[in-house]
Amino acid sequence: MIELENVAYSYSGGALFSDISLRLAPGSFHFLTGPSGAGKTTFLKLCYGALLPTAGQVTIFDKDLAALTRDDIAILRRRMGVVHQDCQFLDHLTLSENLALPLIASDRAAEDAQQDLEDLMAWVDLTHRADALPPELSGGERQRAALARGVIMSPDVIIADEPTGNVDWEMSQRLLRLLVELNKMGKTVLVATHDLSLIRAAKSQVQARVLRIASNRVQLAGADL
């Protein structure tokens, strides 16, 4: 589904990753952990095509990213739900309009997916906030909304960057349950987090593998987690 082969990534300041080979199998659940600044967000961006590797090959849905145009990657991204820590909404649109953005961007009329939209808002318990503007939402509401937007296209892969970074423990457990639910529906899930307690909590609900960024490499973490 997502495959990295001998991938390296360098900023102008130096190498961030080198020689990473990894495969995220369909239906798998992965956590990505590591200290702040280790490159978790950059790694995720490589996984959803927002960045191209400086060496090696990234393959998404059997397509080599280097051979694709920007528009090809955008179309590919419709099969991936991306959830950012800072959520990234359009502040002039209501919550329901923001949730429908992937539909609009893929030239599908939001009206045709009205029922899906309502179901999703109920799933993340935000029906009552449908007409609110993003700045009016709490941190937890924004995170749940970002997750709902990430899955409205029924993607095959969910990639979440610190989805529980700005919420309390109870809300982070709630978000985790939603991610686990998606994984049980067959979605591939990759979650970057520095919150080890979240990973421990997840292990009781789902068979998750943990990847750790250390020394410019991404390695499978051991039992110490």
């Binding site: 927002a50 920007r70 528009d71 955008a74 179309i75 950012h84 961007a105 937007r149």
Partner: peptide, 16 residues
């Protein structure tokens, strides 16, 4: 630029 970033994130093509 931020709007464009969000639109790209949700799969919008340059043409859109």
């Amino acid at each position: 630029a931020q709007v464009i970033k969000v639109l790209r994130l949700v799969g919008a093509t340059d043409q859109f």
